[in-house]
Design a protein around this nucleic acid. Structure first.
Lengths: 343, 343
DNA sequence: TTTTGTTTCACAATCGTTTGTGTTTTAAGT
DNA sequence: ACTTAAAACACAAACGATTGTGAAACAAAA
């Protein structure tokens, strides 16, 4: 592979020194106006591109941010990536992405790879399977800015941006109750994830505050379409079946919806369904899905802004930021209209 | 920011030279076994990570691949990314992503940024708005491997991997015809895109081969959910309305489906609908969508494999590869069953 | 003891930038 | 003409790794 144009090449062409060329390109006024212009013109017309590695080596700075997510092909995470990329691009940063596939080992490998690349900072959303967090301590130990988003790691002292899962779930359950539901089933994800705990607590507290007894047999671990398809019919066959479902994501909610329709029950008359938003799915089911919007795009933007702030801070920033984005319940057709007050 | 551990640090700790440490870590046999072991142990326990920039500078190699896509938050492209990341990871490459947002300027900027980063190769799927291709020639001029996927650029001489859009559309139309449809509407995307041309030709040829007269009034430029929602009702009000729709993607197909149901028509009895697959949408509509699967994941893997081959080739590879992935028609509920032959 | 040969490591150049500090040239001031 | 000061540029040392080549150290062979 032939090498790309370098400062040395340009310097040689004009019989100037490398430093002069370097300064000219940065418009350093100590270089004569004429010289500057001719150098810049030559560089532009010959498509000179500074060698990022060399510059990074010298300045100990890099403009690349590492992002580690469970999976790229997931509407929510893709939304977050979209937001991250947006503000990264605006600030002339570029992002390198690696997915953990929910695996601990791959997450660790990704961290090491990013550290080796000397990224300016790292954004992470935890893999379901990670229980050990020393790789994150390693990042911090190297003084590389780190911020978690969505799937955070409460033990690690660093910035985080999450959605108010607790409130989101609570609001959803409250809505179901207000529309007349009494037996609300909850489909949970991995129970050790913070977001799972928070949502479950939101679910539980909403019930309690409405004087509805918690029935543990209404709580299931189920967060995929297939599982929902399999498990829902059985649940609907119970003598004391639920009249509503709150799912961990829209895909799961869609699976429930499918099964409910198959069972000949009406939505939302017989069964109400509410999901957590991850994309187009909720708008395309029939009936459309009521869902808790998690604002992934905003989350991505915020996470990137947080890390930029840390990167740009002269001295290490003391204290950690904890941004919380409000979820918003989007009411569609899979839940009943709210009963009129005082009717 | 405190600096990370370097070879020099390790060398200093053992009172050895940097070169010895470097070789020891690569298990060079010219370094004494004992020395090697103690160095490797020290490096591991102190989490030494080679500085990728320095190594890259010296060796003129990098293990990062640049990917430019129209948008991250799109199931199809996310699938491709998934595939790319998969084989990249297997080969110890990392990927840096930038989205063009369908804008020419941003695409150019991305190319320059990647070139500056000295990526080992670049994967691109064209933005809708680019008409000028000199930025790609610039990549080639710098001898950086380039491969296009899906939205290719026929004028640029480089590897490509696409789906057989022509055949895919043709097969879909043939299927519609075989199920009894006679007036098939086609919702097109940007007409200058290669994939648009190919699909349209597939559509047209399928009609001709079945002795069905082409009706230009059945061809529309429409590739979003909203547009489909707006335009479809009007089409259904025509005196000579179509009995089938072939859409550019599933989102659009879903919009059509929505409008058709709203109009009180039955699917597929009155109207058949077929989309081009991009995700969960097709499985979650009611009825579920018949769709042409584009195998994004496979496409990503193949594109990455192609570029790796070029990167690893000692000398410039002569000739260009042109991989074509076969689409597969996935029959679901939005189209009628095929009429029995000879019935 | 000297020679020859291994082992084991050190030296130094290099990759392309950036940047602190010279050095030369030119113009101005007296 | 001589000093002084800008102006315009050159030198050289980093940054952290890789790698060809040279130099000790030590042992075996003569």
């Amino acid at each position: 592979m032939k090498k790309q144009l370098t400062l040395k090449d340009i310097a040689h062409h004009f019989n100037l020194s490398v430093s002069t060329v370097s300064r000219a390109l940065r418009d350093d006024p100590t270089i004569g106006k004429e010289t500057r212009e001719k150098i810049k013109h030559y560089a532009k017309s010959h498509h000179y591109k500074p060698n990022g590695m060399a510059a990074g080596l010298r300045t100990k700075k890099s403009n690349v941010i590492g992002v580690i997510i469970p999976e790229i092909n997931n509407f929510f995470f893709a939304s977050v990536l979209d937001g991250i990329e947006k503000v990264a691009e605006e600030n002339n940063y570029t992002i390198i992405i690696s997915q953990s596939n929910e695996e601990y080992e791959k997450e660790v490998k990704s961290v090491h790879s990013l550290l080796s690349t000397r990224v300016a900072g790292i954004l992470v959303s935890l893999a379901k399977k990670t229980r050990n967090y020393s790789h994150f301590e390693e990042i911090i130990g190297n003084h590389v800015p780190l911020v978690f988003f969505d799937r955070i790691c409460p033990g690690v002292l660093t910035d985080k941006v999450v959605v108010n899962d607790y409130e989101g779930a609570k609001e959803a359950v409250n809505h179901l109750i207000k529309t007349g539901c009494k037996r609300i089933a909850y489909f949970d994800s991995d129970p050790h994830l913070e977001i799972s705990k928070n949502r479950r607590n939101g679910y539980l507290d909403a019930l309690r505050e409405n004087q509805i007894e918690v029935d543990q047999s209404l709580i299931y671990k189920c967060d995929t379409w297939e599982e929902a398809r399999n498990i829902t019919p059985e649940i609907l066959n119970q003598e004391n079946k639920p009249d509503a479902f709150l799912a961990f994501n829209d895909i799961t909610a869609s699976g429930i919806l499918f099964a409910v329709k198959k069972a000949g029950l009406r939505i939302p008359e017989d069964i109400s369904i509410c999901g957590f938003a991850d994309g187009y799915v909720s708008q395309n089911t029939d009936p459309t899905l009521t869902s808790v919007d998690q604002h992934g795009y905003e989350m991505g933007k915020m996470a990137m802004e947080l890390i930029l702030k840390r990167i740009r801070a002269e001295k290490e920033v003391k204290g950690i930021s904890n941004r919380i984005i409000k979820t918003t319940l989007i009411e569609r057709e899979s839940t009943k209209p709210v009963l009129k007050q005082g009717a």
